[in-house]
């Protein structure tokens, strides 16, 4: 394998092998987010054109075992449901064109639940009773006053969850069930004077958070709320001398920001403001060309998270031989088109 080229075969091998190393310390401490890992790994395989290397039935069965009775998904079997993992589950099913195995109403109702949990974060009610009262109520009346989303029944509010909720509902064709305008207003209230977005109103701009907010605004046709030139300048200045991108001013570059920064720049049509060739070089320099996988920076330890963001970043950079990925839904373009533009 030559330096300066994508070690595609090695990355495929690496991703397939991660599943088998369940006993390592690394996989034990990340057991709780296995659902994310499955989405990262399988999306990478699909971008590399190798999704058929996995047994889709096995994956789908496992995903469905992570579904909680409330409709939401957990990061692993027996863990609590959370909106973070619900999106990964829905995305992975979309990859396999298997969204129909879901009861879309049950899943989206669980997301509404996360919306309303902000209302009563300290409530003693269990998820089940909350859910019960929810079904008897009017959805619009229950939606959170300020339009924000919570991650789970415990009321943590973050614009990450706004993105996740909106993306998930959109993939399930259930976006019309929430008050989109309010959800958008909440995101706009997290906009900063540098053009970026934070977790909550007043929170510092951060590339990951910006992706979430810009993505949610893209999905809801609300990008007119973004000051594209101001945010575009902030984002393009994330590119440092090595060609890599950082996530905030005066921080180190990191491969995962290839995704957060790039996808945001693409959604607001300002990606030409960075040097793509230099970024491609930086991502490729973070590969483990021997054993596969991509790390945050050159010569660091690889993981599935950075492998996904590296490969997805290369796809956004139109690197040859890769399937195109959609900047808002973080799924291959053909999958997104299939969901929203109907069957062929």
């Amino acid at each position: 394998m030559q330096m300066g080229e994508l070690a595609a075969d090695e990355h495929v091998k690496y991703i397939l092998s991660v599943e088998k190393r369940k006993d390592s310390l690394e996989s034990v401490v990340s057991e709780h987010l296995r659902m994310n890992g499955v989405y990262w790994g399988l999306t990478t395989l699909d971008i590399l054109g190798k999704l058929d290397a996995v047994d889709s039935n096995e994956v789908i069965q496992w995903i469905m075992k992570c579904q909680h009775e409330s409709g939401g998904f957990a990061g692993n079997i027996g863990h609590d449901p959370h909106i973070l993992y619900t999106l990964s589950a829905v995305q992975t099913l979309a990859l396999f064109d298997k969204l129909d195995v879901l009861d879309a109403d049950a899943v989206s109702n669980c997301i509404f639940l996360f919306v309303i949990c902000f209302y009563a974060p300290n409530s003693h009610a269990s998820l089940e009773t909350l859910s019960l009262s929810f079904f008897k109520s009017d959805i619009a009346g229950l939606q959170n006053e300020d339009g924000s989303f919570s991650g789970d029944m415990w009321g943590e509010v973050d614009t990450r969850f706004s993105y996740i909720g909106i993306s998930c509902l959109a993939l399930l064709h259930r976006l019309h069930k929430i008050n989109v305008e309010k959800a958008v207003d909440y995101i706009v209230s997290c906009k900063n004077v540098d053009g970026g977005f934070g977790c909550t109103p007043g929170g510092e701009s951060h590339a990951g958070q910006i992706f979430c907010c810009v993505g949610a605004l893209a999905i809801t046709g609300s990008l007119h709320h973004v000051d594209k030139d101001l945010l575009g300048w902030w984002l393009c200045e994330r590119q440092v001398k090595s060609g890599g991108l950082n996530g905030r001013p005066e921080k180190l570059p990191d491969v995962c920001y290839s995704w957060w920064v790039l996808s945001s720049l693409i959604m607001i049509d300002r990606v030409h403001w960075i040097n793509k060739e230099k970024l491609i070089k930086f991502i490729l320099s973070c590969q483990d060309t021997e054993n596969g996988g991509i790390s945050d920076r050159p010569d660091d330890a690889v993981d599935v998270f950075h492998t996904y963001f590296g490969v997805a970043g290369l796809s956004l950079l139109e690197y040859g031989g890769l399937k195109a990925i959609d900047p808002a839904y973080a799924l291959p373009v053909d999958v997104v088109n299939r969901v929203f533009l109907g069957k062929k």
């Binding site: 893209a218 809801t220 046709g221 990008l223 030409h272 950079l317 808002a328 929203f340």
Partner: peptide
């Protein structure tokens, strides 16, 4: 000529839930 469309979300479309689709292949 491009695999990535940088104006995909600045355009009204079913992807951005800003237009009803009258697209029927």
């Amino acid at each position: 000529a491009h695999s990535i469309d940088t104006t995909r979300y600045l355009c009204s479309s079913p992807l951005s839930h800003s237009i009803e689709s009258d697209w029927d292949c």
